[in-house]
Design a binder for these strands. Structure first.
Lengths: 169, 169
DNA sequence: GTGTGCATGTAAGGAGTTACATGATTGC
DNA sequence: GCAATCATGTAACTCCTTACATGCACAC
């Protein structure tokens, strides 16, 4: 939240929109999370809220306070181990694939390959261009992460292709 | 659950132990999940339970019913898209790294590199040997997945190393 | 005899999602 | 006029984790 507001997102809705085209792949959010959290961060003194209505429609506009900016930098440089959660039904299926016939095994790996290929393509075609826009504003890391993701998925796809070939022998 | 019982785990405790050294990286479980789920699967007719006490200590021993085996195979071959959840604070930090000095950026990437290196090493040194034991029983996929994980983390580590070098210039 | 492992469960709580509810603005 | 988008929130629910609670078996 602090990071997105630091990058210029002003409303809860804008934060949600921004995450949906950027951090979604490694940190999804939902609106039902965003609004309570904004209130919490404002109460904690990390955000300053101001009313910024559009016509009759009320709107809250948030900015980082000095404390909020400090909290963001402190989190970014924190030595504390970063949490990570990964749960993948595709790999779980593969784990139990010995129960299948060779044909079904190859089909299962094929589905995983296709999934990895699709993810890589999506990152290259849809996400990277958005990151390029940010790059013109001097933000290099969104693009770096998009490339890391695309390259890693492509690597997995090739790895699975080789595994398929070895299994066919 | 069905998969682990198919591989020979008989008790809830044994399932938990098995997942902790195998599927933990892509499908963690906790005991508080396992026991209610075993009851549920038994009520659904996918598992058969028998009493198998050790001395005075009661113990439940589970086996797949015909229905359970069919359900397992049907799940493995399902065309339905596999669910996947990935949430990673390390990459999230990197996403906002433009807010940092170059020195702090390099340190942040260094921590991510170290994490990837540690994961790869752990898979090679701790998990792969366990998978090798299973391989002697004809189970090749646990080992395949351990190698996929180790290779992918190693790839990420190298990718980040190159990124660090480019940033230094 | 004592600590470690085996074994089964419950309770409380946290994190996050989906669905529900509402309504103004903007562009076609 | 109508649809898509902007915008803010609540309620119910699901999933999962941590902590609590209990006690036998076995090896040293």
């Amino acid at each position: 939240m602090l990071g997105m507001i630091g990058l210029g997102a002003r409303s809860g809705y804008a934060i949600k929109r921004a995450t949906d085209i950027s951090t979604r792949f490694f940190w999804p959010t939902s609106l039902a999370q965003v609004y309570p959290e904004l209130s919490r961060l404002e109460r904690a003194g990390l955000l300053a809220r101001s009313e910024d209505p559009r016509g009759l429609r009320r709107r809250s506009s948030y900015e980082l306070t000095e404390q909020g900016e400090a909290a963001l930098l402190s989190w970014l440089c924190s030595e504390q181990k970063a949490t990570t959660h990964f749960r993948d039904e595709g790999i779980l299926r593969l784990f139990f694939a010995d129960a299948l016939t060779l044909e079904d095994q190859l089909a299962l790996i094929g589905r995983l390959r296709e999934r990895a290929r699709a993810a890589s393509t999506q990152l290259v075609q849809e996400i990277a261009p958005l990151a390029d826009v940010l790059a013109e504003e001097g933000l290099r890391y969104p693009g770096l992460i998009a490339r890391l993701g695309a390259d890693t998925y492509a690597y997995v796809e090739q790895w699975l292709e080789r595994a398929q070939e070895e299994l066919r022998e």
